[in-house]
């Protein structure tokens, strides 16, 4: 097969069938934009959830009757628990200072004694910042002798877990939906474009063109359409996240970040979409009878 022929035919649509070419590129572009914005939002939403999770810590208050020397002991026992990354001891005096920093008042002036207990600040390892893991660490810490009470943001964690699951299922559902409809949409548009070329395909078969000979220019065309659609979509995404905020005075970049490799992914997915679409569509037409 002559490369020159394949390229000539593959790119001929840009001249001969401008409208269907435009429709295919537009379809690919819109599908990609939908997918891109959706996944960018998803990735960022996920990052927000994760950053909230990062902030989860536990505080164990030590019994006031616990001698200072034993506090070290308790700290070591807590630090040895599964899922605990770091433990920091906060003495009664430090607690008073934190109080002063937070409320601007000296606790001794308010109460003339320090009711704040010494405590352990417990930082959890990654992967243990879920409601379930935190609950079991919570009860483990609580059962250490000398620990009076343990607090952590239980409801926040539970909410995050729940929301994360909802987010996951929701995004999975929407993502699958968008992907499948994109493939169908693209395949359909390309099918329409190829339908217009049925006669050409029939004639090609009639004069003895092989399957590969008929297919290759169409696949190239699909690939090029996908590539162009992908570049346009990537361009729009880039414009939206880099320039839009100047006009709408909303700092999008504060909560949405788009990494540069992402633009490559958009173009790549576009090309695959175009190639797949034309592959699916051309199959049917090649199988048709020559005389019909």
């Amino acid at each position: 097969m002559q490369i020159r022929y394949v390229f000539q035919e593959g790119f001929s649509g840009f001249q001969r069938a401008k409208l269907s070419m435009f429709a295919a590129i537009l379809t690919i572009c819109i599908s990609l934009l939908l997918l891109s914005f959706f996944s960018i939002l998803l990735i960022n939403a996920n990052q927000v959830v994760e950053s909230l999770r990062e902030k989860v810590e536990m505080e164990a208050f030590l019994s006031d009757s616990l001698p200072k020397e034993d506090a070290q002991n308790v700290k070591e026992r807590v630090a040895a628990l599964e899922g605990v990354r770091e433990v920091r001891f906060i003495s009664k005096e430090e607690a008073a200072e934190i109080f002063k920093a937070e409320f601007g008042e000296d606790i001794y002036k308010v109460l003339d004694f320090n009711p704040l207990p010494a405590s352990l600040k417990i930082y959890l390892k990654d992967g243990y910042k879920t409601a379930k893991a935190a609950a079991s660490i919570h009860s483990a810490v609580k059962s250490v002798p000398g620990v009076d009470d343990v607090i952590y943001r239980k409801t926040l964690l539970e909410m995050l877990d729940q929301r994360a699951m909802t987010l996951l299922w929701f995004s999975l559902g929407v993502g699958v939906f968008i992907t499948i409809s994109s493939i169908f949409l693209v395949a359909n548009t390309i099918r329409l474009a190829i339908y217009a070329k049925r006669k050409i395909i029939q004639t090609m078969k009639l004069i003895g063109a092989t399957r590969g000979f008929i297919r290759t220019p169409f696949l190239l065309e699909g690939l090029v359409q996908g590539l162009v659609g992908g570049v346009i979509a990537a361009g729009i995404v880039f414009l939206v996240f880099n320039y839009l905020e100047r006009w709408v005075s909303v700092q999008l970049s504060d909560f949405v970040r788009v990494q540069s490799f992402y633009y490559g992914v958009i173009v790549g997915i576009g090309s695959i979409l175009g190639l797949l679409g034309s592959m699916i569509s051309i199959r049917r037409f090649i199988g048709e009878s020559v005389a019909s």
Partner: peptide, 22 residues
């Protein structure tokens, strides 16, 4: 897959021509 090669040895002419209009 042999059919295309076979068709090259046969010329076919139709009533409706089947020319490539473009």
């Amino acid at each position: 897959r042999e059919i295309p090669y076979l068709r090259r040895k046969i010329g076919v002419v139709f009533q409706d021509f089947k020319l490539l209009e473009d």
